[in-house]
Amino acid sequence: MTDGAQDMGGVKGFGKVEPERDEPVFHAEWEKRAFALTLAMGKPGGWNIDMSRSARENRPNAEYLRMTYYEIWLAGLEKLMAERHLVENDEIETGHSLHKSKAVAVLSSDDVEKTLHRGGPTEREPKAPAQFNVGDRVRMKTTNPPTHTRLPRYTRGKEGTIERVLGCHVFPDSNALGQGEDPRWLYTVKFSARELFGAEGDPSSHVSIDAWEPYMEKA
Protein backbone atom coordinates (compact mmCIF):
# COMPACT_ATOMS: atom_id res chain seq x y z
CA MET A 1 0.00 0.00 0.00
CA THR A 2 1.13 3.54 -0.58
CA ASP A 3 0.23 6.81 1.08
CA GLY A 4 -1.01 4.94 4.14
CA ALA A 5 -0.34 5.48 7.81
CA GLN A 6 3.06 3.77 7.57
CA ASP A 7 4.45 6.63 5.45
CA MET A 8 5.23 8.87 8.44
CA GLY A 9 8.08 11.18 7.41
CA GLY A 10 7.28 14.79 8.30
CA VAL A 11 3.83 14.04 9.74
CA LYS A 12 2.90 16.12 12.80
CA GLY A 13 1.11 15.16 15.99
CA PHE A 14 2.86 11.99 17.19
CA GLY A 15 4.55 13.68 20.14
CA LYS A 16 7.95 13.25 21.73
CA VAL A 17 10.35 10.37 21.22
CA GLU A 18 10.45 8.38 24.44
CA PRO A 19 13.55 6.21 24.79
CA GLU A 20 13.26 3.41 27.36
CA ARG A 21 16.12 2.91 29.80
CA ASP A 22 17.70 -0.58 29.72
CA GLU A 23 15.15 -1.72 27.18
CA PRO A 24 14.82 -5.51 26.79
CA VAL A 25 14.98 -7.02 23.28
CA PHE A 26 11.39 -8.25 23.68
CA HIS A 27 8.69 -6.97 26.04
CA ALA A 28 6.62 -10.16 26.31
CA GLU A 29 6.95 -13.86 25.66
CA TRP A 30 4.41 -13.71 22.81
CA GLU A 31 6.55 -11.08 21.01
CA LYS A 32 9.44 -13.56 20.91
CA ARG A 33 7.22 -16.26 19.48
CA ALA A 34 5.60 -13.92 16.91
CA PHE A 35 9.06 -12.76 15.82
CA ALA A 36 10.44 -16.30 15.49
CA LEU A 37 7.32 -17.62 13.72
CA THR A 38 7.54 -14.79 11.19
CA LEU A 39 11.20 -15.51 10.44
CA ALA A 40 10.72 -19.27 10.33
CA MET A 41 7.66 -19.13 8.05
CA GLY A 42 9.58 -17.24 5.36
CA LYS A 43 10.95 -20.52 4.00
CA PRO A 44 7.77 -22.64 3.86
CA GLY A 45 5.72 -19.59 2.88
CA GLY A 46 7.99 -18.61 0.02
CA TRP A 47 7.11 -14.91 0.15
CA ASN A 48 9.70 -12.15 -0.21
CA ILE A 49 10.51 -9.17 2.03
CA ASP A 50 8.51 -6.74 -0.10
CA MET A 51 5.43 -8.97 0.13
CA SER A 52 5.93 -9.10 3.92
CA ARG A 53 6.17 -5.33 4.21
CA SER A 54 3.16 -4.85 1.97
CA ALA A 55 1.12 -7.35 4.03
CA ARG A 56 1.96 -5.49 7.24
CA GLU A 57 1.18 -2.07 5.86
CA ASN A 58 -1.90 -2.87 3.84
CA ARG A 59 -4.57 -2.31 6.47
CA PRO A 60 -6.84 0.53 7.57
CA ASN A 61 -4.82 3.49 8.86
CA ALA A 62 -6.57 3.60 12.25
CA GLU A 63 -5.77 -0.06 12.75
CA TYR A 64 -2.11 0.35 11.76
CA LEU A 65 -1.65 3.21 14.22
CA ARG A 66 -3.44 1.40 17.05
CA MET A 67 -1.47 -1.84 16.79
CA THR A 68 1.90 -2.50 18.42
CA TYR A 69 4.87 -3.46 16.28
CA TYR A 70 4.65 -7.22 16.78
CA GLU A 71 0.86 -7.17 16.50
CA ILE A 72 1.42 -5.78 13.01
CA TRP A 73 3.98 -8.51 12.29
CA LEU A 74 1.52 -11.14 13.47
CA ALA A 75 -1.32 -9.75 11.36
CA GLY A 76 1.00 -9.61 8.34
CA LEU A 77 2.05 -13.22 8.86
CA GLU A 78 -1.56 -14.39 9.17
CA LYS A 79 -2.49 -12.54 5.98
CA LEU A 80 0.39 -14.06 3.99
CA MET A 81 -0.48 -17.57 5.22
CA ALA A 82 -4.21 -17.13 4.57
CA GLU A 83 -3.58 -15.94 1.00
CA ARG A 84 -1.66 -19.16 0.34
CA HIS A 85 -4.11 -21.40 2.27
CA LEU A 86 -1.29 -22.61 4.50
CA VAL A 87 -3.50 -22.15 7.54
CA GLU A 88 -7.28 -21.69 7.71
CA ASN A 89 -9.10 -19.49 10.18
CA ASP A 90 -10.87 -22.40 11.90
CA GLU A 91 -7.43 -23.83 12.73
CA ILE A 92 -6.29 -20.64 14.45
CA GLU A 93 -9.66 -20.43 16.25
CA THR A 94 -9.43 -24.01 17.59
CA GLY A 95 -5.66 -24.01 18.02
CA HIS A 96 -5.21 -27.26 16.09
CA SER A 97 -4.45 -28.45 12.60
CA LEU A 98 -7.78 -29.46 11.01
CA HIS A 99 -6.85 -29.64 7.33
CA LYS A 100 -4.25 -31.41 5.27
CA SER A 101 -0.80 -29.75 5.39
CA LYS A 102 0.80 -28.45 2.22
CA ALA A 103 4.12 -29.94 1.14
CA VAL A 104 6.62 -27.21 1.98
CA ALA A 105 10.31 -26.76 2.81
CA VAL A 106 10.88 -26.18 6.54
CA LEU A 107 13.58 -24.17 8.32
CA SER A 108 15.32 -26.71 10.55
CA SER A 109 17.31 -25.68 13.61
CA ASP A 110 20.47 -26.87 11.82
CA ASP A 111 19.87 -24.33 9.06
CA VAL A 112 19.13 -21.28 11.23
CA GLU A 113 22.66 -19.99 11.51
CA LYS A 114 23.57 -20.27 7.86
CA THR A 115 20.20 -18.92 6.72
CA LEU A 116 20.63 -15.81 8.86
CA HIS A 117 24.25 -15.45 7.78
CA ARG A 118 23.30 -15.68 4.10
CA GLY A 119 20.46 -13.16 4.44
CA GLY A 120 18.84 -11.93 1.26
CA PRO A 121 21.13 -9.67 -0.77
CA THR A 122 19.14 -7.57 -3.25
CA GLU A 123 21.88 -6.39 -5.63
CA ARG A 124 21.67 -7.84 -9.16
CA GLU A 125 23.70 -7.66 -12.37
CA PRO A 126 22.61 -4.56 -14.29
CA LYS A 127 21.07 -5.08 -17.72
CA ALA A 128 21.40 -1.43 -18.71
CA PRO A 129 23.72 1.41 -17.69
CA ALA A 130 22.68 3.76 -14.91
CA GLN A 131 20.82 6.79 -16.21
CA PHE A 132 22.16 9.14 -13.53
CA ASN A 133 25.59 9.96 -12.13
CA VAL A 134 26.82 11.39 -8.84
CA GLY A 135 26.07 15.12 -8.76
CA ASP A 136 23.08 15.00 -11.15
CA ARG A 137 20.01 16.97 -10.15
CA VAL A 138 16.84 14.88 -10.10
CA ARG A 139 13.20 15.41 -9.20
CA MET A 140 11.17 12.72 -7.47
CA LYS A 141 8.04 11.95 -9.42
CA THR A 142 4.67 13.05 -8.12
CA THR A 143 2.80 9.76 -7.89
CA ASN A 144 -0.05 8.14 -6.05
CA PRO A 145 0.20 4.45 -6.95
CA PRO A 146 -2.50 2.07 -5.70
CA THR A 147 0.05 -0.59 -4.74
CA HIS A 148 3.28 -0.98 -2.74
CA THR A 149 6.05 1.58 -3.13
CA ARG A 150 9.09 2.81 -1.18
CA LEU A 151 9.06 6.42 -2.34
CA PRO A 152 8.16 8.43 0.78
CA ARG A 153 5.47 11.05 0.34
CA TYR A 154 7.55 13.89 1.83
CA THR A 155 10.01 13.67 -1.10
CA ARG A 156 7.54 13.51 -4.00
CA GLY A 157 7.88 16.43 -6.39
CA LYS A 158 11.07 17.52 -4.60
CA GLU A 159 14.43 18.16 -6.18
CA GLY A 160 17.62 16.58 -4.92
CA THR A 161 21.14 15.54 -5.89
CA ILE A 162 22.42 12.05 -6.64
CA GLU A 163 25.00 11.39 -3.93
CA ARG A 164 25.75 7.69 -4.40
CA VAL A 165 25.07 5.12 -7.08
CA LEU A 166 24.26 1.97 -5.11
CA GLY A 167 24.03 -0.64 -7.85
CA CYS A 168 21.09 -2.39 -9.41
CA HIS A 169 18.61 -3.71 -6.81
CA VAL A 170 15.36 -5.71 -6.68
CA PHE A 171 12.48 -3.28 -7.30
CA PRO A 172 9.94 -3.49 -4.43
CA ASP A 173 7.03 -2.05 -6.43
CA SER A 174 7.18 -5.13 -8.68
CA ASN A 175 8.52 -7.70 -6.20
CA ALA A 176 5.76 -7.00 -3.64
CA LEU A 177 3.13 -7.90 -6.24
CA GLY A 178 4.81 -11.16 -7.25
CA GLN A 179 5.59 -9.68 -10.65
CA GLY A 180 9.28 -10.51 -10.50
CA GLU A 181 12.39 -8.78 -9.16
CA ASP A 182 12.68 -6.34 -12.08
CA PRO A 183 16.03 -4.97 -10.75
CA ARG A 184 16.53 -1.23 -11.19
CA TRP A 185 19.37 1.20 -10.44
CA LEU A 186 19.29 2.47 -6.88
CA TYR A 187 20.65 5.85 -5.79
CA THR A 188 21.12 7.84 -2.60
CA VAL A 189 19.36 11.13 -3.30
CA LYS A 190 20.14 14.06 -1.00
CA PHE A 191 17.71 16.93 -0.36
CA SER A 192 18.12 20.11 1.65
CA ALA A 193 15.68 20.33 4.55
CA ARG A 194 14.55 23.67 3.05
CA GLU A 195 13.60 21.95 -0.22
CA LEU A 196 11.58 19.34 1.66
CA PHE A 197 10.00 21.43 4.40
CA GLY A 198 10.24 25.03 3.22
CA ALA A 199 11.05 27.82 5.63
CA GLU A 200 10.47 25.48 8.58
CA GLY A 201 13.29 23.19 7.39
CA ASP A 202 16.48 23.25 9.49
CA PRO A 203 18.91 25.38 7.44
CA SER A 204 21.87 23.19 8.44
CA SER A 205 20.32 19.82 7.72
CA HIS A 206 20.00 17.50 4.74
CA VAL A 207 17.96 14.34 4.34
CA SER A 208 18.61 11.49 1.95
CA ILE A 209 16.54 8.58 0.75
CA ASP A 210 17.53 5.55 -1.29
CA ALA A 211 15.43 5.65 -4.43
CA TRP A 212 15.12 3.45 -7.50
CA GLU A 213 15.49 4.96 -10.96
CA PRO A 214 11.76 4.78 -11.87
CA TYR A 215 11.01 7.07 -8.90
CA MET A 216 12.81 10.05 -10.44
CA GLU A 217 13.38 12.17 -13.51
CA LYS A 218 16.07 14.59 -14.56
CA ALA A 219 15.53 17.99 -12.97
Binding site: F35, V87, I92, V106, S109
Partner: peptide
Amino acid sequence: ELRVRALETVLTEKGYVDPKALDLLI
Protein backbone atom coordinates in the same frame (compact mmCIF):
# COMPACT_ATOMS: atom_id res chain seq x y z
CA GLU B 1 -1.06 -14.08 23.57
CA LEU B 2 -3.67 -16.79 23.08
CA ARG B 3 -3.66 -16.28 19.33
CA VAL B 4 0.13 -16.56 19.05
CA ARG B 5 0.05 -19.69 21.19
CA ALA B 6 -2.66 -21.21 19.00
CA LEU B 7 -0.80 -20.27 15.85
CA GLU B 8 2.44 -21.85 17.04
CA THR B 9 0.61 -25.08 17.92
CA VAL B 10 -1.12 -25.21 14.54
CA LEU B 11 2.08 -24.50 12.58
CA THR B 12 3.99 -27.10 14.58
CA GLU B 13 1.24 -29.73 14.12
CA LYS B 14 1.18 -29.00 10.41
CA GLY B 15 4.94 -29.52 10.26
CA TYR B 16 5.64 -26.02 8.92
CA VAL B 17 7.92 -24.96 11.77
CA ASP B 18 10.59 -26.71 13.81
CA PRO B 19 10.14 -25.62 17.47
CA LYS B 20 13.90 -25.93 18.02
CA ALA B 21 14.50 -23.49 15.16
CA LEU B 22 12.11 -21.00 16.81
CA ASP B 23 14.02 -21.21 20.10
CA LEU B 24 17.31 -20.74 18.29
CA LEU B 25 16.04 -17.68 16.39
CA ILE B 26 14.97 -16.06 19.66
